[in-house]
């Protein structure tokens, strides 16, 4: 009690009020450091874009191929001057689509379970498992596709139908690979749905399932769409799985049980150290990379757009 009394009496003894600006060097240093980090990431991105454009320009400038051929040709075989990206693009689309067909329902189911159903204990077990799943190197997934998924598909559909290297197997494993991504992003979106909406539904006599599927999921739909788009860009960009299990020859086919080669798979095979640095084959992989970059860039723009809309939904 006495001390409080003293302090209340103290103001008279306080030193004169000083509102002058003070130098705080550590603040400045930290600020500069953080700024530099931001700048570096921007420059790295710009650098990558620059290299992609530069090398692609060389490719298109070689006179051996023009953009129309590049976009519409149906054969990709650089060694004989065939540069039609369609077979690579189609294969990328098919594997990604299969991947999404696997990842979307499963990822969403996991997200709904985690966000709406799981007890804290179940969450405590399941979330780390998902994180482990997300942390497995993709090359392991690649061998998983080759040595487990492909034999499984062959035993289901027959070895005559399913080729040893095929898009289905790679696609399914890509799906498994991105489940954690879809699940965690969707779970964030679901958890962000206000509790009051759930209570409103329960208050009307809705079951848990009705509440989850008819109220929470629709309310989180924009966030889930964003997760799906990020998942698609991940699937499109996935490399090791397709390099190991989908095949090593570009082929224009819609049959998921046939082998083909995706854009990323082709890049990794060709850049495996076998090409002369200034050959057109070598430059061609940059044009593929640029094409990929444009795709993922567009997907990112779309996802940003969707996420922005998502914020407007329930307030």
């Amino acid at each position: 009690m006495q001390t409080t009394l003293k302090t209340t009496a103290a103001p008279i003894d306080l030193p004169q009020l000083d509102l002058h600006k003070r130098r705080r060097p550590h603040e400045i240093i930290i600020q500069a450091f953080l700024f530099a980090c931001g700048i570096i990431s921007i420059f790295v991105t710009l650098g990558i874009v620059f290299v992609l454009f530069q090398e692609s320009l060389r490719f298109f400038g070689s006179g051996e191929v023009n953009l129309i051929e590049f976009l519409t040709g149906t054969t990709w075989q650089p060694a004989i001057g065939e540069f039609g990206i369609l077979p690579l693009f189609l294969s990328t689309i098919i594997t990604s689509l299969i991947g999404m067909l696997v990842a979307l329902p499963l990822g969403l189911a996991v997200a709904i379970y985690l966000s709406e159903y799981a007890s804290p204990r179940a969450r405590g077990i399941l979330k780390p498992i998902l994180e482990v799943l997300a942390g497995i190197p993709t090359v392991v997934y690649g061998y998983f596709a080759l040595t487990f998924m492909t034999p499984l598909l062959r035993s289901l559909f027959g070895a005559d139908t399913v080729q040893i290297y095929n898009m289905a197997s790679g696609g399914i494993v890509i799906g498994i690979l991105i489940i954690p991504l879809i699940a965690s992003m969707s779970e964030d979106a679901l958890s962000a749905v206000p509790r009051s909406l759930r209570e409103g539904a329960y208050g009307l006599g809705a079951t848990k399932l009705e509440t989850s599927l008819k109220i929470v999921v629709p309310a989180a739909l924009s966030g889930i769409s964003a997760a799906v788009i990020v998942g698609i860009s991940r699937a499109v960009g996935e490399t090791m799985v397709v390099a190991l299990s989908v095949g090593a020859g570009p082929k224009l086919t819609f049959n998921p049980f046939e082998s083909a080669e995706t854009m990323t798979g082709h890049i990794v095979r060709i850049s495996g150290g076998d090409l002369s640095y200034d050959s057109i084959d070598y430059n061609s992989i940059f044009s593929i990379a640029l094409f990929l970059f444009v795709i993922t860039f567009l997907l990112n723009l779309i996802s940003r757009f969707v996420v922005q809309r998502f914020r407007e939904v329930y307030d």
Binding site: T75, Q77, I80, E82, A159, I164, A248, R269
Partner: peptide, 30 residues
Amino acid sequence: GEEALLKAENLQLSEDDNVLVQGVEGDKNA
């Protein structure tokens, strides 16, 4: 000759001989 080979359908080209071994091992039409 090179063109004839590279234009063939169902052609897998890999530097990794294991890819080839696995491929032939896996399919009776390979």
